[in-house]
Structures are given as C-alpha cells and as structure tokens.
Computed example of a mutant assay.
Amino acid sequence: MSTYSIKDLEQLSGIKAHTLRVWEQRYNLLLPKRTDTNIRYYDDDDLKLILNVALLNDNGYKISKIANMSDAEMRDEVMKLTDRTLTHDDQIHALTLSMIEMDEERFDKILSTNILKLGFEQTMMTIIYPFMSKIGVLWQTGAINPAQEHFMSNLVRQKLIVAIDGQLYKGGGKKFLLFLPEGELHEISILFAAYLIKLSGHKVIYLGQSTPSADLVSVYNLHKPDFLMTVITTSPSSEFVQDYMDHLAENFADAKIIVSGYQIVGQDFKFAKNVTPLYYLRSLKEYLSEINEVLQEK
C-alpha cells in the first residue's frame, strides 16, 4: 500500500492542501494516519476518495453533500458523471480511478466512448496523453505499482493496434521505419506515430520495443526507408543520448531521422543535418503535412 502526504493529494487531485485540511476539520472527510514519529500520511483509499471528491466538486456538487455520501453513493454519482460528460478533466479523473482500481471494463468503456464521440486522434491528444502525464506524477509519488501501469499501458496499446490495423496502405507516399532503442519499452508514443503516419498515406515498417542495433541495420538495408523514427523516453540514459543520435545520423546517412521523447524535450543537443527533433508528438502531423505538400507538387 502506498502512502501520501497532503501535498501529494493536492498535486494528484488539484485540490489545495489548505482546502483539504478545512474539509478534514469541518466534515471529517479524511482521517489521516500518523507514523511512529507523528507525521501525518494518507493511504490508497484516501487517494481514491479525494479523486472522487474532486470530480464531483468540479461538477457543482457541494462539499457538504459529498461528505454525507456513502462510498457506494459517491461511486455511483461519479459513474453517472463520466457517462454523460465529455469534459476532458473529468474523463482523465475517471481513467485514473479505473487504473488505480484496475477496473478493466470501466477503463475500456471510457476509452471506447470517447473514441466514438471525439475520434481516435482527438482522444489520444486531449485525453490519453494528458492522462499519461498524470501517470508520470503518480509514479513519482509511488501512487501506482508496476501492475497498474502495465494494466493501463496494455489497454491503450490494444486500442492503438486496432486503430493502426484499420488504416490500409494504398501504395505511394514515403517509407518510414519505426523503432525504439535497445532497452526502451515505452511503446505508446511510437505506436501513435505509426497510426498518424499510416493515416497520412505512408508505409510503416514497425519494429517496436528494444530494437537491437544489428537488427535495425539489417531491416534498413532490406527496405531502404526514407525516414527512421524513434522515441527516447528512458533508454539510452541522458548522458548517452547525444552519442546515440550521432550514431544514427552516421550509420543511416541517406535517411532522414526523426527523434522525439522525454529525453529529447528541453535538452540542448546538437542535431546532425539529417536528424529532426520533434519536441511534441502533435508536431508529427505538421511534419507529415509538409511531406505530403511536397509530394503533391511533384
């Protein structure tokens, strides 16, 4: 079981620590535990409670009414809200709760409903990616364990694969080779890139997670792609990213190389002429549009 400070709850729920303390005193909403050294802390149940409270309060429920709800009543009201509202923050709250509780049916329903109403691309941009940013905060505070993270990632991955399979390549366009460096397992961003590239009418050769350098060279020599794309999140580590990009630029000098990911954003790297950084994945759409404009002019 994870433990949280009141600052952790503030960061995760968006409710100010001062407000939480007032609600504790006035409504007995939270009952903090104490360590042997008398330091206050909160547990998983407190986190789920506050996420529910935040969602209801943001949608006009008075805190006095929320405080008198049973756990079952509160959950029912949250379910009703997320079924009928398309407010992005509400959906992200609901996904977070579903992940913490590992409620696969609920998680899948939220994703599917938003995809039907917003479209796959907008659901990824406005709900899934902000949700994944929130997951990053949850990791930092120890709020989720590896099982919960894998649960979430696999469900999102399934949606991405279905969406990618639905985009049929009709010939023409450019050829993109997509891969992750050795040791890199965070696949969501590169899968979404594959979806956007296929949607734009280009051919995708997808190698996926932790691609050995020798295999990358073999596939490159076989298919001669116009572009290589990778996303660097955790591997290689920050001190080796420059060397890794230089290695790609030198070994695939005839291709254009697109790099993105957490290890790229906000860093002061020197990029070779054939390497293009994308600091935000949404920039890939603009990049693809520029490629298509050039193709249409020919």
Rank of each mutant, 00 (worst) to 15 (best):
H150L: 12
Q158N: 07
A193R: 08
G183I: 01
M1C: 07
K80W: 07
S289M: 15
D165H: 14
V219M: 11
Y280Q: 02
N292P: 09
T126P: 01
E290G: 13
E250R: 15
E250C: 14
L168M: 12
L118D: 03
D36M: 10
Q91H: 10
H18W: 04
L168F: 08
S189T: 09
T87I: 14
L118M: 09
K7W: 00
D108F: 09
E10T: 02
L51Y: 00
S289G: 13
E239H: 05
Q11P: 00
A214E: 12
Q25H: 08
V294E: 15
P277Q: 00
L284P: 05
L20M: 00
E121M: 12
A147F: 03
M69C: 13
L111R: 01
R26T: 03
Y61Q: 12
I92H: 10
L196Y: 04
L9N: 04
D36K: 14
A94I: 02
G60H: 13
S237H: 03
M79W: 13
D103I: 07
H202T: 08
L30R: 05
M102V: 04
Y169P: 09
P130L: 02
E101C: 04
K48M: 08
D215I: 01
I50G: 08
Y206F: 14
I39R: 14
N154W: 00
R106F: 14
N57E: 15
A54Q: 11
G60D: 12
K198D: 00
H186K: 10
Q122M: 14
V231P: 05
Y27D: 06
I15M: 03
S2D: 03
G208Q: 07
K270E: 13
M1W: 02
D45A: 11
H186M: 10
R157A: 06
D103P: 08
Y280R: 05
Q11K: 05
S189I: 04
